[in-house]
Structures are given as C-alpha cells and as structure tokens.
Design a protein around this nucleic acid. Structure first.
Lengths: 240, 240
DNA sequence: TAAATAGTGTCTATGAGACATTATGTA
DNA sequence: TACATAATGTCTCATAGACACTATTTA
C-alpha cells in the first residue's frame, strides 16, 4: 500500500502535455412552432462576432483527491450559467466528443458535446431575445447559413440526427412539450423535429399505444381554440 | 516541494489545470463461436495485476500550430500498437466519453472510449494468447467476473449495448465475419452478439433482403462441412 | 441409406403509411 | 348554420416471430 502511495507521488513527475477539455451545449427548444437552438455571439477571438454554441472549460482539480467536477456536472453547470434554468428540469445527454487537432486555433481543445431539450414553457425564462442580446434562439434550419465558429455546425447537425433517431423509440419528445399537451401539439413537435408533418390519424394511433402502455394519462381541462378543443394529456413519470 | 509549488503557481497563472485525456479501446472479435474482448493485464498501479482495456494517452502538442494527433488518430494508433493490425481493416467508432472525477485515482483522466470490430480471420494475428501473455481475448460474458480496473466494466457493457442496437440497421455484423461467409455463419454472429440464437428461416429472409438490396453477393466456392455445404457470400463494398 | 444441415414456405401478429369519414366545438 | 379541427376508421404493405417442411450433401 505504501508502495502504491509512493508510485502515485512519483507519477506526477512523468507528465505529458495535456489538452484543455471543454463542454459545449446544443440547447434546443421549440418557439413559435420551430425547433430552435440557443447560440451566443462570441465577444473574443477566435471567431469574434460569430455565433457559436455556449460552452466552457471543465473544471479540473489539481491533485489525485480533488479532481474537479464530473463531465455531466460541467454540462449542467454550463446549462445553468447560460440559461438560468434548473438542470434537473432539462433533458441533458452526452452527444459526442470532438477532438480534431486544430479545431481551436488557440490551443488544443477537446470538447465533449451535450445536447439539451428545454420544454417550451421554460424557454421564455432563458435570458435571450433582448434587443442587443448576444444570446438568441435560432431556427435550426437557419444554422448552416450562420457559419458558426469552430466545428459547431457539425455538432448541431449531429445532435439533430441523434434526436431524430431517438424520437421513435424513446420519450424525448415529451421534453419538448409543456407539462400538459394535446395530441396535435405533440404531433406538431414530432413534425418539426423530423422536418415533415405527421399524419394525424397515424400519429394518434401511436399516441394511443403510449396511452395504453401507461406512459401518458389524460389531464383535466381542454385547450382554448377557435374551433373544437383538444383533450389535454400529461406525461406519466416521476417529475417534479 | 517549494520548487513544485512555485511551478504550480506559475502554471495556474497562465492557465487552468487540465485533465489528461486518454483513449480506451473495446476491441471485439469472435473466436471459437464466442464474442470476445481484448484485455491487457496491468503491470503498474493502479489496479496492478487486474485486467483492463487497452488504451493510452492522446498525444497533445505544445503550441497552437502543432496541436498533436486527432482523437480518431489516437484510437487508430493505440489499436495498431496493441494488436499490430492495420487500423484501416478494422471497424472503429467512438463510443462515449467517461469523465467522472476520481475514476483514475492518480489524477484526473478523461477517457474517450472507442470500440473496434476485428474480423475473426484477422484475430489470430493479434499478439495474444501466449502462455505467460498479458494480453488475452476474453468471452464478453465473463467480463463482469473479472473485475476490470477503472470503470472499464461499464465501458464494455456500453459498447455491447451499442453494437446490439446497430446490428439491425447497419452493416457492422460484416465486420465480425471473414471476407467470405455463409448464411449460417453470419446468423451465428448475430446470435452470439445478441446473446440468443436466431431463427434460421427468419434470418435467411432478412439475408435475402440484403442480397436484393445489393449489399451482398454470391461468392465462388462452398464451405467444407460434414453434411450439406452452404453457399458462400461476400460483402459488396469498396474494401481492399 | 441415414444423418445432418442447408434452404423453403406458411401462418399470424404488429406497425407504418395513405387516406376517407365522422364528431364536436366555436363564431 | 358554416367552418375548423379533433377524433375515428379502413385498406394496404412491409416486417418479425414461430414453426413445419423439403432438399442436398457427406459418411
């Protein structure tokens, strides 16, 4: 045991250059019937003045005991810092790690990308959209035109692929809809994410399956509309 | 000690502490009708004497121009070093990044895990299996009993999940089979990966679909067996 | 010819896609 | 009542699972 301790101390001597490790976030929500991603305008070089994903460096401790924050913690912290939202109320998942040499012209940065799904009723609380704001929700279809800094176009694109794939076999769509929702509303979310409208009848069939499986339940109330109001449902899960 | 303290202070001044970044490999193949993973016995602390995944640190350059190797390059290099195989002949894909604080007791290490699929006809060329070897192919079902070092159990488990999921909608099974193969052979690969035998008739039906889609083609020759020999196929792809 | 395995065919259940039809609320 | 949209129903096709059956090669 003392042998191991000695080794640990000696280990510090042989050290190689290390990269900086960052966490970048693809924060998505639906505003005005469009899938949108939160971008920040860079105030420093490189890519000054261009839009980019929010993110920051992972806080790393000095020694073997205090090693700093977990990657997931770092992602939650960044999410909180950038949006002010409670990370526990937002779906957050690691996406992929981007580590090409030269992707940051300053120094070697390896970035672990996460994507987050923000329920649209929480989106207004995000400090974005002001007049001279440097934080804004952009329609994802507009992203290619924006010429994001770094390789962030690629990161956004990959997260879209991911959520499109997961839409069918997971619950993630419910993280893009308010706490209560109607069938047409949820159908619209699917349509917006997939980029094509869903058939009302077929979608309802899937919806009824989820209902039978107990993933959903009828909620009290109805939607106020200009014609026939739709029934309101809620997701059935331990959710505070 | 004061010398070190001075160094650390100076270091902190110009930058934040950085983690070491490693690449760990889940190298899989099929030997003797079992899905196996390549493990190495650790010769140093921590976890000395225990089995663990092969891996190593990413080579990072010092300055903004020479930033070192890409993550994918690092994975290929490690694969080559550990197996002697040509990385271009092996399927290699990034899996997930593991970055919990404390997962390496020495210092903060963030590891980007990759998994590799080695065709079984190439597996014998891997320098493993010798008498006093510290490199060995283990049946994946035995992994939990081995008590791997670090969080490597978790990494192996996640890669199994990944390839099981990808088995249905991708071509990855063809990377676990020799250049030419029979239907029963490929069926067996699916069965071994999924952990349950596949129905011959139903599997053949899927196989015929792939054939019609042009992903496969009949190859000359037949398999030598003790009964009726099976027809031999090959994967249709630019492959050298 | 017997044994063994390759290969074929069938029945059923499930789910997706397209699309027609009915029901129910508001203005 | 007219209109808009919610909600239901139907037809077809593709695929998965279970399983019975036939064909072909070797020993």
């Amino acid at each position: 045991m003392s042998e191991e301790k000695a080794f640990l101390t000696a280990y510090r001597a042989k050290d190689y250059p290390r990269p900086s490790v960052a966490v970048d976030l693809v924060i998505l929500t639906i505003v005005d019937a469009q899938l949108r991603v939160l971008l920040v305008k860079r105030k420093e070089h490189p890519f000054m003045g261009q839009w980019a994903l929010p993110g920051g460096f992972v806080r790393v401790g000095e020694g073997p005991i205090e090693q700093g924050e977990d990657l997931d913690e770092a992602a939650k912290r960044e999410l909180k810092e950038e949006t002010g939202l409670d990370p526990e109320r937002v779906y957050l998942e690691q996406l992929y790690t981007f580590g090409k040499a030269g992707r940051d012209p300053r120094l070697r940065v390896i970035t672990v990308a996460y994507y987050a799904l923000v329920r649209p009723d929480l989106a207004p609380f995000v400090k974005a959209g002001g007049d001279a704001s440097d934080v804004e929700w952009f329609d994802v279809v507009a992203v290619p035109k924006l010429k994001l800094g770094f390789d962030h176009d690629e990161i956004v694109e990959m997260s879209l692929q991911r959520i499109r794939g997961k839409l069918e076999y997971t619950n993630i769509a419910f993280d893009l809809v308010p706490a209560t929702f109607t069938i047409p509303e949820l159908r619209h979310v699917h349509g917006v994410v997939l980029g094509k409208p869903m058939d009302p009848g077929n979608f309802r069939r899937s919806f009824n399956r989820w209902l039978e499986e107990g993933r959903l339940e009828l909620a009290p109330g109805k939607r106020i509309t200009t014609s026939k109001p739709a029934a309101v449902y809620r997701f059935k899960r331990a959710r505070d």
